[in-house]
Design a protein around this nucleic acid. Structure first.
Length: 666
RNA sequence: GGUCCGAUAGCUCAGUCGGUAGAGCAAAUGGCUUUUAACCAUUGGGUCCCAGGUUCGAGUCCUGGUCGGAUCACCA
């Protein structure tokens, strides 16, 4: 296998050739072009980064005074010389500074003097190099080069993006900008590649995500930008995470790390990544959730425990899904689901206030543009009530009736509603076929019209599809679509078919117990009708027990789990419940899951025998929760894509100009 | 996987009806000792994504492909 030659890894053009020449010239002038260190001054008490220096009170004060003077001037006016000179006297009294950074702009050279801005990634500071005042430092000896004009020559070979260190005194220029008057100049490192466009940054979203380093440089170089810079997005993310940790630790939680590689992928409904350990010769799975390990720790006496780290799910990638994502999970002994919702609210309010400074966030990139999310109030509503509420909204759009809470126990009615809902597809809605009356579906008895149907398996499948198709005039509608939109809409029909098949397979499967069917249907209706409409923070409570295999049943209603999910802007952000701690019942629930797995449900949970053993030692009553940190960050940073809040999101492999190996696989 | 949109200088983008390939930024050279999207002058830089077709002539029109984006589907 051949390795990629250096010159193919970085693109070669006139720009890189110039930089390469400059590098060689610098090597001649100052020696080693990659020195090992540069000692910065310590006026601010620690090493002076540009940011620290600008925040150093005496400097900040003088700067503020200068700004005040500038603010009082008219357009194009310059600050009066006396005031400026007075400030410069105070600056000079501070002594010399030594700072370093990346040249954030191409140098502005004027004959025998030049200005350039240095950036420490956060802040920038202008430096002024005058030919007669500056000496260059040798990178080999660390001593000044004797010859006059060397520094100026060195400066001539510097490019936009290079790193330099300077020593000199602070002063304010004629136009009122704080700057360093350079007396010593040291070259520190070369940028061999040209910097991103200073006005536009990096336009290609793929390069932004793939070459995050370039994106970060670009956002620090750009002078003006709307919204948060990339760096600010990740600073906010870091602040959010750190404030969550502080809050939990202040409330007695201890942070732990449980295995990422596990012999069983369980604790959530998801498909895992599989790998193999050679020495042990066993298959391992990247964890899909730390849940069962954390509860083992509750068994072991960690009454309050949390883990904030990555989970891995081998599923689709979308604006809200990345194969690895960061989740906070925590557990609290002696607490139930209601206590957990209260605590979750407090946690979010606290950490959002800390990281964002405010509890309201305006979203501008979403389909729901200009929505303001208000994190100060959290609604609580049961799953069934939510379906009813939004069904009414949907009913208004489509023209038909309301639901009744009793119907959630009527399998026949629910099945019809599911098909009805499944049929109301965006594209199909346009065709005018939506004039169907809900009452007609509900009152329709398939047995009357279906004639011979001894095939039990098909009961409620082909019949329903046939009946509802007829009722809705679907076939006619499809034809009229085909007429008006031509052949292109055949795919809509295919989509409809796969959609119906999915519904039939996962929601209307007769082989499941009636309880499970009711649960699945309710969940389906919730996803179809409600989920995307939950914009403001909303806890959905009272989940069907049969789709919540790790949570305790409600004392009031054995069919209902003490479980909630928090939805914001149509996304699931958190999921919590009263933890099931009866080992026998937990075993039975796992057994049900394994049964579902055998009949083809790939996401049903896997039995974990050791977890059952752990519960058998006794676990106190407890509540737990998982919170999606990436999605929360999306909300706080006004980003519509999870890739914008993950530094290095997963992408398909980079396509290089393939010289050989043009093999493409589907 | 479906649909729509896109690919032109290192970057961001124009390119009319089919008639010699353009701008700004970046780069090179010269000038300029307080500029700041520095300025002034000069210069270099192109497989117009690929292949085929129509045409006297294709960046432009047609067909096929590659790559990318948006969106829908899948994925709680």
């Amino acid at each position: 296998m051949s390795i990629t030659p250096f010159d193919e890894i970085i693109e070669q053009n006139d720009q890189t050739a110039a930089r390469r020449e400059h590098l060689e010239k610098l090597r001649e002038l100052v020696g080693n072009p990659y020195p090992n260190k540069f000692g910065r001054s310590t006026l601010s008490g620690e090493e002076d980064t540009i940011t620290r220096l600008l925040e150093y009170p005496p400097v900040a004060e003088i700067n503020a005074e200068m700004y005040a003077i500038l603010a009082s001037l008219g357009e194009g006016e310059r600050p009066p010389a006396e005031k400026k000179d007075a400030l410069n006297k105070r600056l000079k009294a501070l002594g010399n500074v030594r700072i370093a950074g990346r040249m954030a702009v191409p140098p502005r050279v004027m004959g025998k003097a030049a200005f350039v801005h240095l950036s420490d990634g956060i802040s920038r500071l202008q430096v002024y190099v005058r030919k007669q005042d500056a000496v260059a430092i040798s990178n080999d000896t660390g001593e000044p080069l004797d010859e006059e004009g060397k520094a100026w020559e060195v400066f001539g070979y510097l490019d936009h993006g290079d790193f330099i260190g300077v020593e000199g005194y602070l002063f304010i220029t004629n136009t009122g900008e704080l700057s360093v008057h350079v007396e010593k100049l040291q070259f520190l490192a070369k940028a061999m590649l040209p910097m991103p466009d200073k006005m536009h940054g990096i336009a290609d979203p793929e390069i932004r995500q793939r070459q995050r380093y370039a994106d970060l440089i670009a956002s620090s170089l750009q002078i003006e930008h709307d919204g948060l810079t990339t760096r600010e997005v990740f600073e906010r993310r870091a602040k959010l995470i750190s404030s969550i940790r502080h809050f939990l630790e202040d409330h007695g939680y201890i942070e732990v790390e449980t295995p990422m590689l596990t012999p069983k992928a369980t604790g959530a409904a998801a498909k895992p990544f599989k790998t193999h350990h050679n020495a042990l010769d066993i298959d391992l799975y990247a964890r899909i959730a730390p849940e069962l390990y954390l509860k083992r720790l509750v068994v072991g006496g960690f009454e309050k425990v949390y883990e904030l780290n990555r989970n891995f799910r081998n599923e689709g990638i979308s604006y809200k899904h990345n194969p690895e994502f960061t989740m906070l999970e925590f557990y609290c002994a002696y607490m139930d689901v209601n206590g957990m919702m209260d605590f979750c609210e407090q946690l979010l309010i606290n950490s959002i206030t800390f990281s964002n400074g405010s509890l309201s966030v305006k979203l501008t990139n979403d389909p729901y543009a200009d929505v303001v999310i208000d994190f100060s109030s959290f609604e609580r509503i049961s799953m069934r009530e939510a379906v009813i509420r939004f069904w009414q909204n949907k009913g208004q759009r489509i023209g038909q009736g309301d639901l009744d809470i009793d119907w959630f126990d009527d399998i026949d009615k629910l099945r019809r509603l599911v098909l009805w809902t499944a049929l109301i597809d965006n594209e199909l809605r346009k065709s005018g076929m939506q004039q169907m009356n809900v009452a007609t579906i509900l009152n329709y008895d398939p047995k009357l019209e279906s004639g011979d149907n001894d095939d039990e398996d098909d009961m409620g499948i082909s019949i329903y599809i046939d009946v509802i198709s007829k009722e809705l005039g679907f076939w006619q509608a499809t034809e009229s679509i085909n007429d008006s939109f031509k052949a292109g809409h055949e795919t809509d029909f295919q989509r409809f078919e796969t959609r119906i098949q999915r519904v039939l397979r996962t929601v209307l499967d007769n082989s499941m117990s009636e309880e499970l069917q009711l649960a699945r249907i309710t969940q389906f209706l919730f996803e179809e009708v409600v989920e995307r409409n939950l914009i403001q923070p909303t806890f959905i409570v009272d989940y069907p027990k049969s789709i919540s295999p790790l949570s305790k049943a409600s004392p009031q209603n054995p069919q209902v789990a003490e479980r909630f999910e928090l939805f914001i802007n149509g996304m699931e952000v958190a999921n919590g419940f009263s933890e099931l701690n009866d080992p026998r019942e937990q075993y039975d629930r796992f057994a049900d899951q394994m049964k579902a797995r055998e009949s083809g449900d790939e996401e049903a949970m896997v039995l974990d025998e050791d977890y059952i053993r752990a519960l058998s030692y006794g676990m106190p009553p407890a509540a737990g929760i998982g919170i999606g940190i990436d999605r929360l960050t999306m909300l706080l940073t006004n980003k519509h894509s999870i890739r914008d809040v993950i530094l290095f999101p997963h992408m398909r492999p980079e396509k290089r100009v393939a010289t050989e190996d043009t093999e493409s696989k589907e």
